[in-house]
């Protein structure tokens, strides 16, 4: 009697093993939600160049807009200065966003790629 019981368990084990291998072969379930991957910031020179580009482009766009408005309203160099600083702010914003320090302007995911539930009141909307 006991011998027969062991034989049964072996065939069950084999079947379970097969089931597990099938599941592994199917691969992980693909989910629909996009995972935000920030582009790699990492090492020194690379980061300096990338981040410098962000900062510089903010300045350029700011100064550019200011220049155009000045040309239009003939208030040179007033708006250029104003927008230069705004552009600096934008550039700094870009830098922080691209290095992942500030959440991107995203109400559905935070910087840690946690999907926020669609609560009308978000914890970050509460006054600090």
């Amino acid at each position: 009697m006991p011998k027969k019981i062991n034989e049964n368990n072996n065939s069950e084990d084999d079947i379970d093993d097969l089931g597990r291998r099938i599941k592994a072969a199917r691969g992980p379930e693909s989910t629909d939600s996009p995972k935000n991957q920030a582009p790699p910031p990492n090492e020194g020179v690379g980061q300096a160049m990338r981040v410098g580009a962000e900062l510089l482009s903010g300045l350029i766009v700011g100064a550019g807009i200011g220049w155009f408005i000045d040309g239009w309203l003939e208030t040179r160099p007033l708006f250029m200065i104003v927008f230069f600083f705004l552009g600096a702010g934008a550039g700094i914003l870009n830098v922080y966003r691209s290095t992942g320090l500030i959440e991107r302007n995203d109400t559905n995911h935070d910087a840690n790629n946690n999907k926020n539930t669609n609560n009308p009141i978000d914890s970050k909307d509460l006054p600090e």
Binding site: Q47, G52, A53, L55, L56, Y96
Partner: peptide
């Protein structure tokens, strides 16, 4: 400190570009 590091590298990069 990390914030400042990013900003500094940004400033360095910008100055490199400009020069």
């Amino acid at each position: 400190r990390v914030l400042n590091k990013a900003l500094i590298s940004g400033l360095v990069g910008t100055t490199t570009y400009l020069t």
